[in-house]
Design a protein around this nucleic acid. Structure first.
Lengths: 204, 204
DNA sequence: TTTTTTTAATGAACAGTGTTCATTACTTTT
DNA sequence: AAAAGTAATGAACACTGTTCATTAAAAAAA
């Protein structure tokens, strides 16, 4: 009776084909232009077929944003590989986060700016991939605290401050609000800000 | 020949009626639901009429976001009235910024998160209201630097860092990404983060 | 093998969006 | 009173997300 299993396997295969197409449509054309019809065209299915595999657009975007988190988490892990000093870990994770955002602006948009993927999470449900990613920041910051390397001693305050700073930095850039700074200095200012923030955090 | 003047006056009146309606539609229903037809309904005009007064939706939203900046600038000014200490000014402006964002999330969204209003600015044009608002932060930070009250000495780095931190804080909150923190502690953590950041900035 | 049942995919439609344009209604000028 | 100019609109176009009755294909039962 392997027939139902094969059917299920085929179903999952089509599902991930759609997901792949959605991700690509999204990365290439951004949130606004990645319509159901555009995704359907890529997989050569009818738009209605999409709804046999996903409840609605939010659910598709939620699934895509999970793929984004997988990638980000990997890059965060790669960034600290072989590094012992917790402060240096923090710095490298900061740059990894920034690079991810600037190299994948549409994906970052989906993960941290757009409302859509969050609407797919029910009231009392957990934002699993978000938590998983956040854990890596917590780990590093906790190490900094344990070794008395930073001036903040409350984990929650430290992680919220650091994350907010990094998110503000990249999202203002992505959303074109840094017009208040000279165009040609923005990149340098952003790096300098990261360094400055670490310097401020660090214990003497 | 006051007839053309009267015509012009009437034109401007209708224009600001539409603008008022757009602002309200926006504040009440948010970016997504504030459609041209919804705005037209509020002023009891045909949707096509809107286009006699605004080039497109971006231009409407740009005009609305300017109204938001007027309000924010006023609140920033009110917040520092009578305060001499630059650090205290910075703190109060920080809280004023945060309160504005949390009390007017849809407007803040438009001003600092949405792409639409920025698309109405031509390539080599200036983001006047943005610059005007940013000036107030520059002034305060420059005073802190002049009086050697903060650890950062480069104006650009300081303003970018502080603004990024504040924007990250309120935008992650607005866009529901602080699910990684216990719901009931978020508000307190946000205030604590602002205090912590000022403490880090301050010279001993 | 033929018939019935189950499953998968779709075309067409609905209600909504921003935007355009020929046509109508109204004002001002001649 | 007729002509010219301006303001407002209804209807349409090309999109959007989503639904549903109908069709095509595969599996199960006869």
């Amino acid at each position: 009776m392997g027939i139902t299993e094969r059917k299920e396997r085929e179903r999952q295969e089509v599902r991930s084909l759609i997901l792949e197409a959605a991700q690509q449509a999204f990365i290439e054309d951004g949130y606004e232009k990645a319509s159901i019809r555009a995704i359907a065209d890529r997989v050569e299915y009818s738009p209605a077929t999409i709804y046999l595999y996903f409840k609605d657009k939010s659910e598709i975007f939620f699934a895509v944003h999970e793929l984004g988190f997988e990638k980000l988490i990997n890059q965060l892990l790669d960034a600290v590989e072989g590094i012992e000093n917790p402060i240096e870990k923090l710095r490298q994770q900061g740059y990894a986060y920034m690079n991810f955002a600037l190299e994948n602006p549409e994906m970052y948009d989906l993960m941290f700016i757009q409302n859509a993927p969050m609407e797919a999470i029910f009231e009392n449900e957990e934002w699993v991939c978000g938590h998983r990613c956040f854990e890596h920041l917590c780990d590093t910051v906790q190490q900094c605290i344990d070794n008395k390397l930073i001036k903040i001693s409350v984990l929650g305050v430290a992680t919220m401050s650091i994350w907010s700073f990094m998110h503000g930095l990249v999202s203002l850039k992505i959303r074109n609000r840094f017009k208040t700074f000279p165009q040609e200095h923005i990149q340098n200012l952003m790096s300098a800000s990261v360094e400055q923030m670490i310097a401020l955090l660090q214990n003497d």
